[in-house]
Nucleic acid binder design. Structure first.
Lengths: 227, 227
DNA sequence: TGCACATTGTACCGGCTGGTTAATTCAGTC
DNA sequence: GACTGAATTAACCAGCCGGTACAATGTGCA
């Protein structure tokens, strides 16, 4: 165990922060794989560098652990989103980039998607209890609001389509693309989930979102035909 | 117990078919509510008109029961879809109707959505085993294919957007609208889930789908502005 | 009626699983 | 180097829960 101590104390042989982190990471994978009731504390403990007792020591009980995993999942994903820089782009390009980024970002974080699916199965009961998550998500739509403001100021965007609604549509496609891959591909084949298929979906999502956001007379389409 | 016997034999006092049906209905509700590992056989038996013994008699084990519930869920929903009649409508109107219907239909069947969510959590492992479901779903896209054929023949529809992709986009929004209601509304409020909000989403979904399917020069938009 | 088979009730079990008890080690402090 | 609180270990437990054994009863048929 030659990890560098992750906590604030240095030269500390025991590593509480590292243990917590290790438990959280393993638990996230297990909950994402098996759900709240499907995950086994013993299995989580087994895959940890520490023991079952430590899980209860740091997280109280199974639901407490799940709650922290949920928070951690949101924290990781929202943090990743912050890195996207859009202010230097004109509104239409910014919206296009945001949609493409969201589509790819969700695709890169299937465990997050699965945790959110599981949380929805539980009617958002645990998310309900977390103030941290509400704070984290408060900023989730700010980029889009800024884009919409600029777009409207430039006379490009409709004003009867709200940022929230745009966010909903972008999220729906990006989320569904991961969450329902198993059943959809089983029923209709894998075509849409190949590299080519995914690019097609993404591009068409962008077209749809732009078609929705832009005033009809400002639409940059036809995508690649006469215009 | 004055149900009429549902089986093939008449004048039969015992009612195996009815018992099966009763178990399936209760189990579907329980699995939808709690997931596969979360649902309790004892609880299901309790809410049934019969006993736990009968569940094992008819369905073998818990997973067998879940598999049949999954089939039944698909059967109910796909059967309900059959009732939609679109052949008498011109292609654009037919597509609009199909999208609106799908949106509403999913909204009316939250338990089906939840079962599909749960099945996706399990990577579609049980759906994988069911030939019945594959057959049921084979026809799920035929209406859309017919619409697209007519639309292309009339010179209205693009030919680089497949029926499968249109189905994917319509499904994504309609599914997400139910599946992620809990977390989305907790984070962003209920505005989109009021009657008004839902109508707005549905109308904008239609706009997006039509914008995607139609050739640019044939788009009937601007939605309600000059044009 | 008596036979063969389908259906059902009762009582039970084994081990999995979330959670705990209590003793032990570790690191800093005086 | 004894004291203290935080961190850790190992053994243990109660009851839940999926599943079963077996007897009993219902049903059509000859």
């Amino acid at each position: 165990m030659d990890d560098k101590p992750a906590g604030t104390r240095s030269g500390w042989k025991q590593d509480p922060a590292g243990v917590r982190k290790n438990i959280l990471a393993v638990a996230m994978a297990e909950f994402a794989a098996n759900g709240l009731s499907g995950a086994r504390i013993d299995d989580i403990a087994e895959k940890t560098n520490t023991s079952k007792r430590m899980i209860y020591y740091y997280f109280g009980d199974k639901e407490g652990l799940y709650g922290r995993v949920l928070e951690e999942a949101y924290r990781q994903v929202r943090t990743g989103e912050q890195e996207l820089e859009l202010d230097h782009l004109p509104p239409v390009e910014a919206l296009r980039s945001l949609a493409e980024f969201t589509f790819d970002h969700h695709s890169r974080h299937p465990d997050f998607i699965r945790i959110v699916m599981i949380e929805n199965i539980h009617h958002g009961a645990y998310l309900e209890k977390s103030e941290l998550i509400r704070l984290l998500n408060a900023g989730a739509i700010q980029k889009l609001e800024a884009i919409c403001r600029r777009g409207r100021e430039a006379g490009l965007f409709r004003d009867d389509v709200t940022p929230l609604e745009l966010h909903w549509h972008i999220s729906a496609s990006s989320f569904f693309n991961v969450s329902n891959r198993a059943t959809f591909s089983r029923i209709f084949g894998n075509a849409l989930f190949s590299g080519e298929g995914q690019n097609g979906l993404k591009q068409h999502l962008v077209e749809m979102v732009l078609a929705l956001a832009l005033k009809p007379e400002r639409r940059p389409f036809p995508s690649r035909r006469a215009g």
